[in-house]
């Protein structure tokens, strides 16, 4: 009888030890996520660039949109001004803290919109042009180690901490050595894959790094994707009036 009891105790101890060993240390990944966010933000400088978007739509064909992008992370501001195509020239987006405005020069009116919305019907969201906030918006649920191309990566499963982000679940492929996000997958509330993102090239800008090429694939509509290339990247100080409604209105005169 005593032998059986001893065996049972040993068995329980063994189970507890295995469970403890199996529980991963998520804090490593949480640190990495913080680094990902930090190196993609520019609190000390402004950022400007020209975004060239090529949208592949099986119904509409190929479309090109050229956008001038101004960003000031101190105060969470950005301004997007569409330069091409001519029919949309002068349309723009202005982020002022929590408020995102869309300006249409034909009606000369500002309309309230959201960071969660897609940008001009592309596969990019308005939030993709703001600074990343994975560490504050998501919690790490699990991770594995893998190889993506020539890079050793962490494959991180994330779950949104609240409903302020459009995709409640996400998966990131982050390089181990440089904390660069190479690939993303974003999932719906019922965990269906909705959008994939590829970030094949980065450039160092000041103290941070930003992707110079982004590819967003719509996983629900066959063959629909958007490729975004960044050029004319600068961290030069921008005038304060750039991040105002008046600037958007004046830009069309």
């Amino acid at each position: 009888m005593r032998k059986h009891k001893a065996l049972l105790v040993l068995l329980i101890l063994a189970c507890c030890w295995t469970a403890a060993a199996a529980e991963k240390d998520m804090s490593i990944i949480e640190d990495i996520l913080r680094k990902v966010d930090e190196q993609s933000s520019f609190p000390e400088t402004d950022l400007s660039a020209v975004l060239t978007m090529i949208i592949e739509d099986p119904e509409e064909g190929l479309e090109k949109i050229v956008v001038r992008h101004f960003r000031r992370d101190d105060g969470e501001r950005f301004l997007l001004l569409i330069e091409e195509p001519r029919t949309q020239r002068g349309q723009g987006y202005l982020l002022e803290g929590d408020n995102l405005w869309f300006y249409d020069p034909s009606s000369r009116k500002f309309a309230h919109t959201s960071l969660k919305e897609s940008f001009q019907g592309t596969d990019a969201r308005n939030a993709d042009f703001s600074q990343w906030s994975y560490s504050s918006s998501y919690k790490v649920v699990d991770y594995t180690e893998d190889v993506l191309g020539n890079f050793s990566v962490y494959v991180v499963d994330l779950e949104a901490v609240d409903d302020t982000v459009p995709y409640p679940y996400a998966k990131l492929w982050i390089t181990k050595d440089s904390n660069l996000v190479l690939r993303t997958q974003e999932f719906s509330l019922n965990k269906r894959l909705m959008r994939s993102g590829l970030f094949p090239s980065y450039t160092k800008v000041g103290d941070g790094v930003i992707p110079t090429q982004m590819i967003f694939i719509d996983e629900l509509v066959e063959g629909k994707k958007t490729q975004i290339s960044l050029s004319e990247i600068s961290t030069a100080k921008l005038p304060d009036n750039v991040f105002t409604k008046a600037f958007l209105e004046r830009a069309n005169r």
Binding site: P166, Y167, L189, R192, M194
Partner: peptide
């Protein structure tokens, strides 16, 4: 068919 929609709080979902 698939239905892509937002929840009442603005999260993406698919049916």
């Amino acid at each position: 068919i698939l239905m892509r929609l937002d929840t009442v709080t603005g999260q993406r979902n698919v049916g």
